[in-house]
Design a protein around this nucleic acid. Structure first.
Length: 107
DNA sequence: CGCAGTCTAGCAC
DNA sequence: GTGCTAGACTGCG
């Protein structure tokens, strides 16, 4: 959270409730930018790893997918991401979100 | 499938 | 301090 950019991204992402997901596009637009890639960078470099979800400052980067509900890389591996999402009640099929539109959180 | 657009972080000079 | 490259993306051809 070194920059307002990251700050916004993390803040917005933390706003996503359990059992819901969001997209890089939504985060980028909500942050006031079009650099969708930068959002992904922030997730990958984010200091609040998913494994640090003990505190309130966690960044559920595993709840972030692309516009096509397709899961991309994950700091801990897509496999871990899938398990975490399913653990929250989200179904994953071939690295894709099931009922994507229903669990998609919009800002 | 491939190229271009947009932003940040990291490394090189 | 400035410059170039790469990356968890998206949209269009």
């Amino acid at each position: 959270m070194a920059n307002p950019f990251h700050e916004k991204i993390y803040k917005l992402l933390r706003k996503v409730p359990k059992g819901r997901v969001t997209t890089y596009k939504a985060l980028a637009e909500a942050a006031g930018t079009k650099a969708y890639r930068a959002v992904g960078q922030a997730m990958n470099k984010n200091p609040y790893g998913i494994l640090n979800c003990k505190g309130e400052n966690m960044v559920p980067c595993h709840r972030v997918v692309d516009s096509k509900c397709h899961l991309h890389g994950f700091a801990h591996g897509l496999k871990k991401k899938k398990e975490l999402l399913e653990k929250e009640g989200i179904r994953i099929e071939n690295n894709k979100i099931v009922d994507f539109e229903k669990i998609l959180h919009k800002f």
